[in-house]
């Protein structure tokens, strides 16, 4: 292939409801690499894009939360498979976004793929780990089961544009929630490309919706949105986090605080994630069923 060939640029688009729209506002903003070199124009999402994403996420919630845990695990694993095949693209985008060498960027992408595999395996185990039968003092079978909270707004980490991103999305959807993700404002391109992978991984449209733009501008309507059940403030600074937390109180959203802080990129996203991100957006439902009576009347039935 000739070195002189003019490359084909990619138009980066949002990922909402399984489709790739431009921002409803028609706005874009310039995305540069860590040295300030122009990389692409990304859509600058508006309040209405946020609203559309919530509608898509809500619509997808019934099917996704109702899917079998095994099925969700298969799909999360499929995402890892699809990423593996497009690794080069993500290595390039992560290197540009985070100013990493090619080898370091490759390690980040490998870790992100492995994270999907980790969470793929959790879908059908978390219920056994955090749920179970409770030995109540009476003739009842009492079972606690974790259930997804609903539609979760996820403010992705600002610095870790891909491993951090995957680390906050995967646990939310592994448990059956659907997500509206606000990508890193300065480095949204790996997130927008991830949308293309999700679209080809059997993940139902609307389960993950990805928006790029100014975090505060998109997050504010999401934090106050009455049809959003929870918000992950990972990508918000302390001032924004407090504002959003106040707004989130209007319908008592579950709030995952801005910790672990990724200010200065100090947070090590490659560490063992544990289960707290899985459990942060789970509700516990406890169902009481009568068993037979105690036999006081000679009959337990």
């Amino acid at each position: 292939m000739s070195d002189n060939r003019l490359s084909v640029f990619k138009t980066y688009k949002l990922y909402v409801g399984g489709k790739f729209p431009r921002s409803e506002s028609g706005r874009v903003y310039e995305v540069t690499d860590s040295k300030g070199k122009w990389l692409a124009n990304a859509p600058q999402s508006s309040r209405k894009d946020a609203r559309d994403a919530v509608v898509a996420a809500r619509k997808a919630f019934g099917g996704w939360s109702g899917a079998t845990a095994y099925n969700r695990g298969q799909i999360l694993y499929r995402i890892a498979e699809m990423l593996e095949g497009r690794k080069d693209q993500f290595v390039r985008e992560v290197a540009d976004a985070e100013g990493l060498s090619k080898s370091k960027a490759a390690a980040v992408v490998d870790a992100a793929i492995d994270r999907w595999v980790w969470y793929a395996g959790w879908t059908d185990k978390i219920g056994q780990v955090v749920g179970g039968a409770n030995p109540v003092a009476g003739p009842f079978f009492n079972l606690s089961t974790p259930e997804p909270t609903g539609v979760v707004t996820v403010l992705a980490p600002q610095k870790s544009s891909f491993l951090g991103l995957v680390s906050v999305i995967a646990p939310v959807i592994a448990t059956g929630n659907t997500a509206v993700v606000v990508a890193s404002a300065d480095s949204p391109l790996p997130a927008l490309s991830l949308g293309e992978v999700l679209a080809t991984s059997d993940l139902p449209g609307g389960v993950v919706n990805i928006l790029s733009g100014k975090t505060a501008e998109i997050a504010a309507p999401l934090a106050s949105h009455q049809d959003v059940n929870a918000i992950d403030l990972t990508g918000a600074d302390a001032t924004l986090a407090k504002e959003l937390e106040i707004a989130a109180a209007d319908n008592l959203k579950r709030v995952l605080g801005p910790q672990p802080v990724d200010e200065g990129g100090a947070f090590d996203w490659s560490a063992d994630p544990g289960t707290h991100r899985l459990t942060a957006f789970l509700e516990t439902k406890t169902v009481w069923h009568p068993t037979g009576a105690l036999g006081a009347s000679g009959s337990s039935y």
Binding site: N134, V136, A137, N142, S144, K285, T286, V287, P290
Partner: peptide, 20 residues
């Protein structure tokens, strides 16, 4: 958060209680 099937308002210290 709590569903009672063929019973109602039963409580027990071992049984998690709380809402959606």
């Amino acid at each position: 958060g709590v569903v009672w099937a063929n019973t109602f308002n039963k409580f027990d210290p071992t049984s998690p209680f709380g809402g959606y």
